[in-house]
Simulated scan of single mutants.
Amino acid sequence: MTVQESPAAPFAVGTFATADGREFAGLVAGDRVVDLTGSGLPETTRGLLADWAAALPRLTALAAADGPRLDLADLRVLAPVEPRQVFQSGANYRTHVIDLAVAHRSAGDPRTDDEIRADTAALMDRRAAEDLPYVFTGLPSAITGPYDDIVVPDWVAKPDWELELTAVIGKEAYRVSEAEALEHVAAYTIANDLTAREAVFRRDMPEIGTDWQRSKNIPGFTPLGPFLVPSAFVGDVTGLTVRLDVNGTTYQAESTRDMIFGIARLVSYISQSARLLPGDLVLTGSPAGNGMHWGVLLQDGDVMEGSITGLGAQRNRIVRKAG
């Protein structure tokens, strides 16, 4: 993977900065970028998403037209959109959940690893049959760029990765059916949902369960992008490969086929209790291969490289902050 990998689609959109710090929304095709400033289109990606049905044909025409373009290599690639809301699906990949159940087993659990795997697999079957996804909310302040350094505070002892396919909302959705849910998804991108593993479960208050605010919402713990690839170019998202390398070693290389609940079900489910807005993100969970499973957690200087089929690639360096 290169530091700035172009999308495989005919074009995508993103947010960029010039060497002098000017930020702008742009259309990227290959290794060239069209600055949308002054084009008559909205000048932020969230603005584009707010009227995606009108923006997409204009972007298509602009991608095919001659005109001034910038070199992608000369630009800083920022997080592609500033969402108002971030919805995160937990426990949505069967194998990943089974692996985590083994890795997080309590010291007094008398079951063997095989018994834990069998019990967790049965639980996943029940969840699928009951048709109830598990979703929680994240903070937009945790988002950072796809090539930015990630600063890990000194209190985090077990920083871990979770690369995820992410749906980007392009039309307000409230109480939508599963059949119509994908009409509200404008694009897809990549998110790496970093987690402080030791902070996931509240040992002092086990009846409360998980503490996602503390374990996942540290500033910079959600690198996003590089680009928003229109859903029309992505098509069927089952069968995409989610891959993450750390220092050149592959730890995640799994298919989205292992999802328990698909994009349409997640969007519909969330919309029954929350109003999804243009630019909002729906993170769909991470497949097997997180650091807890491998016994490998992120260290100072580690470099993560993540990609999903057709969506480009991220590259982030870990910086441990003392004090």
Results as ranks from 00 to 15, higher is better:
Gln4Thr: 11
Ala8Ser: 13
Pro10Ala: 01
Val13Met: 03
Gly14Lys: 01
Asp20Met: 06
Glu23Thr: 12
Gly30Thr: 10
Gly30Phe: 07
Val33Cys: 04
Gly38Trp: 12
Pro42Arg: 06
Glu43Cys: 05
Gly47Val: 13
Ala55Thr: 01
Pro57Ser: 08
Leu59Gln: 06
Ala65Gly: 13
Gly67Cys: 08
Gly67Thr: 06
Leu72Lys: 10
Ala73Thr: 11
Arg76Gln: 09
Val77Lys: 01
Pro80Ile: 07
Gln88Thr: 06
Ala91Arg: 15
Ser106Asp: 14
Asp109Arg: 03
Ile116Gln: 00
Glu130Ala: 12
Asp131Gln: 11
Tyr134Ser: 12
Thr137Arg: 15
Ile143Phe: 05
Asp148Lys: 01
Asp148Gln: 09
Val151Lys: 01
Val151Pro: 03
Trp155Val: 14
Trp155Thr: 12
Pro159Val: 07
Arg175Pro: 01
Ala196Cys: 10
Glu198Gly: 14
Asp204Trp: 09
Met205Pro: 00
Ile208Leu: 15
Arg214Pro: 00
Ser215Pro: 10
Asn217Thr: 14
Thr222Pro: 00
Leu228Asn: 05
Ser231Gly: 11
Ala232Ile: 06
Val237Gln: 11
Gly239Arg: 15
Thr250Asn: 13
Leu266Asp: 01
Ser273Lys: 15
Arg275Asp: 07
Ser286Asp: 04
Gly289Cys: 07
Asn290Gln: 12
Gly291Arg: 01
Met292Gly: 15
Leu298Tyr: 00
Gly301Tyr: 10
Gly301Asn: 10
Ile308His: 09
Asn316Met: 07
Arg317Thr: 08
Ala322Leu: 13
